[in-house]
């Protein structure tokens, strides 16, 4: 077969070198070596500086299994250059957001990689858990339509990548949400996540029979919802919460969300009233005559 000759984009040597370091040399055993080379680059040149930061955000250009090395490298650079961490996190978050807005299958791999990278950056303490949870919630809410008659362009019925993205992120850093407030937050999130999955599963799109052959072979299952997705969700959540009861219907998932919300509203009310009392006592104490 005829194959097109690969066209190489001409790049300045310094760009080629940065790309070689990050996209080819970087691996578990070479992180320190690459870090040393990266530190030697001419960071004071704004053009080179911008290029380095651009490449540091491109987790999809390296092997998926090496994404954690890139996060490790960024964490290593931060001790010498404070600004790198913030910029990389900003860029990764933007890439995740823009991916949801464009929502083109061409970028699916890239999106998975970016989400994994964000999780690894959290593992290296480049950001707080609240940012991770905001991203998790954005996956199950951004442009999501809870009305089956209104199809959302951002999250059409057949689109299941969001579930995968949630799983990738939880797989990467969910293990650290095991105590304190982040543990509770994850428990809450899992309730919402299950409702989202059931929302997808109950859409008419998935209940249509594929063909008559299929129906015969699998008469019990009326849903076409891919079993791989179920397995993926199970494999992700079970190590995090071994005792978790999976919701068996949309109603069940919705009920547990309602339970969470009830708990939450009670808490908010408590905080609001205690805040009022606190303010009152502060006002009483604040003026001390000289």
């Amino acid at each position: 077969p005829k194959s097109d000759t690969v066209v190489y984009k001409p790049r300045p040597p310094i760009h080629e070198y940065i790309r070689k370091l990050l996209f080819r040399d970087l691996s578990k055993s070479t992180v320190e070596k690459v870090l040393r080379q990266m530190r030697k680059l001419p960071w004071s040149n704004p053009e080179v500086y911008n290029y380095i930061l651009k490449c540091l955000g491109q987790s999809w250009s390296i092997k998926f299994n090496n994404v954690h090395c890139l996060a490790s490298l960024v964490a290593g650079l931060v001790s010498y250059r404070d600004d790198v961490g913030h910029i990389v996190v900003d860029d990764v978050l933007e890439d995740i957001r823009v991916g949801m807005e464009i929502n083109h299958p061409r970028y699916n791999q890239r999106r998975v990689s970016s989400v994994k990278f964000l999780g690894e950056l959290y593992n290296y303490r480049m950001l707080e858990s609240s940012v991770i949870f905001n991203v998790l919630y954005s996956f199950i809410t951004f442009g999501v339509s809870y009305d089956p008659s209104r199809i959302s362009l951002f999250d059409p019925p057949e689109h299941l990548l969001r579930i995968r993205l949630v799983c990738v992120l939880l797989e990467t850093c969910g293990q650290y949400f095991d105590r304190g407030s982040s543990k509770r937050r994850l428990d809450y999130f899992i309730a919402y996540f299950q409702r989202y999955i059931w929302l997808k599963r109950s859409l008419p799109y998935w209940s249509l029979p594929v063909s008559s052959d299929d129906e015969n072979s699998d008469s019990e299952n009326t849903s076409r919802f891919p079993i791989e997705v179920d397995y993926l969700v199970q494999d992700t959540l079970e190590p995090l919460r071994p005792k978790l009861q999976f919701a068996a219907s949309f109603q069940e998932a919705a009920n547990s969300v309602a339970g969470v919300e009830k708990e939450m509203f009670a808490k908010i009310e408590k905080v609001v009233t205690s805040d009022k009392i606190h303010h009152q006592t502060v006002e009483n104490l604040s003026t001390i005559p000289e």
């Binding site: 404070d82 950001l127 940012v131 991203v135």
Partner: peptide, 12 residues
């Protein structure tokens, strides 16, 4: 911005 941190002003 979803990530609120900015680089520290004091440049080491």
């Amino acid at each position: 911005s979803p990530f609120q941190k900015v680089p520290k002003k004091l440049k080491k």
